[in-house]
């Protein structure tokens, strides 16, 4: 990682997650969240290859956490060496009735799937247990973080904070947008797309059907392995990557 990349990572004021979790464990009110924070976070200097990770993806009815809702959640446990399908979690959930589900056709979830599904409240404990002690791996953290935070505020009355490694963020750091370079301008080099499917293609990863939370979580897990294998040392401190 270059000095510039490191600076850009630090610019966002990433908290020290272990300290933050210790303090949140004291201030959280809902028992599910207390339990979650009590399970702690790894130390900031932990080598990445020793960090337990959990790839996470959600399908939502839209992009605005205030107006749209979670439809499904996929979780796939992993570390740098292995992605383990065993221990994965996939849940379809019923959004609160006031939130529209017009984007359903876009996903591979039908209305009847949703009608039969439990509300998120019923799977929250299971979800938080799966996340406990792990650093989450997502592609574009603003969706997963914001939607989960919003949903917990809705159901538990308080939001959630959790560390993530964002593969889109890593891809942006690896391929910084070169707006100014004269050479790039002369060559009309298009900026690299950092969407999940395009990023995967750069590492020779297979094409998957997207918009299924479990498949996308798996796709994200594979992408992180590929990114680290290609661009980073496996013992890089987790604080260099997490947000």
């Amino acid at each position: 990682m270059t000095e510039r990349q490191r600076r850009s990572a630090q610019a966002e004021h990433t908290p020290d997650w272990r300290t933050l979790f210790a303090s949140l464990a004291r201030t959280a009110r809902h028992p599910h969240l207390v339990k979650y924070y009590q399970s702690g976070a790894v130390a900031a200097d932990t080598p990445l290859d020793e960090v337990p990770l959990m790839a996470l993806d959600m399908e939502t009815t839209g992009l605005d956490p205030k107006k749209h809702a979670i439809l499904s959640i996929g979780l796939v446990p992993m570390n740098l060496e292995r992605i383990r399908c065993q221990g994965s979690l996939y849940r379809v959930v019923k959004p609160p009735s006031e939130l529209s589900s017009e984007s359903v056709a876009f996903h591979r979830i039908t209305h009847s799937d949703i009608e039969a599904a439990p509300p998120l409240a019923e799977v929250l404990e299971e979800l938080l247990d799966a996340m406990a002690g792990k650093v989450m791996v997502v592609h574009y953290r603003n969706i997963e973080r914001a939607f989960l935070d919003r949903a917990l505020q809705h159901y538990l009355g308080e939001g959630i904070h959790f560390p993530v490694i964002d593969t889109m963020d890593l891809e942006a750091r690896i391929h910084p947008r070169q707006k100014t370079g004269l050479l790039n301008w002369l060559l009309r080099r298009p900026p690299e797309s950092i969407r999940l499917a395009d990023s995967r293609r750069r590492y020779g990863l297979p094409q998957y059907q997207s918009h299924h939370a479990l498949t996308d979580a798996l796709a994200t897990a594979e992408l992180l392995q590929a990114q680290v294998a290609t661009h980073f040392r496996t013992d890089i401190a987790v604080c260099e990557l997490w947000r």
Binding site: R82, I83, C85, Q86, L218, Q225, A226, A229
Partner: peptide, 9 residues
């Protein structure tokens, strides 16, 4: 669901 996955350079 019992499979493990690994990316190798």
């Amino acid at each position: 669901p019992q499979i493990e996955i690994s990316y190798v350079r």
